[in-house]
Amino acid sequence: ELAQQKYKPEWGLTAQYGYRDDDPMGRDRADLFSVGVTFDLPLFTGNRQDKDVSAATSRAEALRTDKLLMARKLMAELDTTIVQIQRLNERRTLYDQQLLPQMAEQAEAALTAYNNDDGDFAEAVRARIAELNAKIDFLTIKVDRLKILAELNYLLPTNRSVLLPQSHAKQSPATHGNRTEGKNP
């Protein structure tokens, strides 16, 4: 629309006032006042105005296309992030409900067997190390999940509460002897 304004006639009015001091001989000089009117009439619009309008239209379309591409990129990031959070939730549930309890039981059984002179010390240590490694993996999953939730909060800033679980603030550590059943860390 701004480029199309160049098709219309353009009017201009100028006014100037100039104060003049006395000349070097001491004679008085008159001050100056001038008024000017300008009128710009675009007669041959094919050269400049048509090109300006088509360039402005192209710039507007380019901006529109950039916005569309950015929206598609953000939607693709959102889809990827949602899939990642689903996989991390599955892994978190597997660790919390199956792997960590089994590792704790196995480590406890190996330690009990060693205490009863029925097992090997190295086996009891390996079981405890495997349990600790599983807990570290579980913590890594939880940290990765929180990073992904931060990305989701960036991509969907208006409706964050849908993505955060209710027990998000009540995360319980998955340590042996300190576990709480039924809570979702």
Rank of each mutant, 00 (worst) to 15 (best):
A3E: 02
Q5C: 00
Q5M: 05
K6I: 01
K6D: 03
K8R: 15
K8T: 02
W11C: 02
W11Q: 04
L13G: 08
T14Y: 09
T14H: 10
G18K: 11
G18A: 09
D21Y: 09
D23V: 08
P24R: 10
P24D: 01
R27C: 00
D28M: 10
A30R: 11
A30F: 09
L32S: 14
V35P: 04
V35Y: 11
G36A: 13
V37Q: 05
L41I: 12
L43G: 05
T45Q: 03
G46H: 04
D50Q: 11
D52C: 02
S54E: 11
A55H: 06
A55Q: 10
A56T: 03
T57W: 00
E61I: 03
E61H: 10
A62V: 04
R64F: 09
R64M: 09
R64A: 13
T65S: 13
T65K: 12
L68P: 00
L69M: 08
M70W: 08
M75P: 01
M75E: 15
M75K: 15
E77K: 13
L78N: 09
L78P: 05
L78I: 03
D79S: 14
Q84T: 13
E90Y: 09
E90S: 07
R92K: 06
Y95A: 01
D96L: 02
Q97C: 03
L99C: 02
P101V: 04
Q102N: 09
M103D: 04
A104C: 01
E108H: 09
L111V: 03
T112V: 05
A113L: 11
A113W: 03
N115V: 00
N116G: 01
D117G: 09
D117P: 00
D118N: 10
D120K: 06
E123G: 05
A124L: 05
V125E: 07
R126T: 07
R126G: 02
R126D: 15
R126P: 02
A127T: 03
I129D: 11
L132G: 01
N133H: 09
K135M: 13
I136H: 11
D137Q: 15
L139S: 10
L139I: 06
T140C: 02
T140L: 10
T140F: 01
K142S: 12
R145Y: 15
R145M: 07
I148R: 05
E151R: 15
Y154G: 02
T158D: 15
T158E: 15
R160H: 01
R160L: 04
S161Y: 09
V162S: 09
L163D: 07
P165L: 00
Q166R: 14
Q166Y: 12
Q166M: 07
K170E: 15
Q171E: 14
S172G: 06
P173R: 04
A174E: 05
T175R: 13
G177V: 07
N178Q: 15
R179M: 07
R179C: 00
T180D: 07
